[in-house]
């Protein structure tokens, strides 16, 4: 199990356009990735490729989330996803 934390950089938080970009990136990966707010139990983690899950997570700007994945290439994949979350996608 690989695990990474990321701080949400988008000003509107992780919904609307930033959530769409992130969910699409996760969906393109061959592995399953979960997302949870930092401090929440791993059992409550949600499917990171679901824009609806991301929206219900409601991660705001500055909040820390935990990404988890298993399998080949999980580390590299999470590294890339952290970069997306830590970019202000709203500004682009």
């Amino acid at each position: 199990m690989s695990e990474r934390t990321a701080t949400i950089a988008s000003r509107v938080g992780l919904h609307a356009r930033p959530a769409a970009i992130f969910a699409e990136a996760v969906g393109a990966l061959p592995i399953e990735v979960t997302i949870a707010l930092e401090g929440d139990p791993a059992d409550d983690a949600m499917d990171a490729s679901s824009i609806l899950s991301l929206m219900s997570l409601g991660a705001a700007n500055g909040q820390v989330v935990v990404l988890r994945a298993e399998g080949d290439g999980a580390d590299e994949a999470l590294e890339g996803l952290v970069k997306i979350l830590e970019t202000d996608l709203d500004a682009e």
Partner: peptide, 16 residues
């Protein structure tokens, strides 16, 4: 455009 893009993602959303 952004409404349509987000709605497109929802259509095949794993949760749904």
């Amino acid at each position: 455009k952004s409404v349509l893009e987000a709605t497109a993602l929802m259509a095949a959303d794993p949760m749904l």
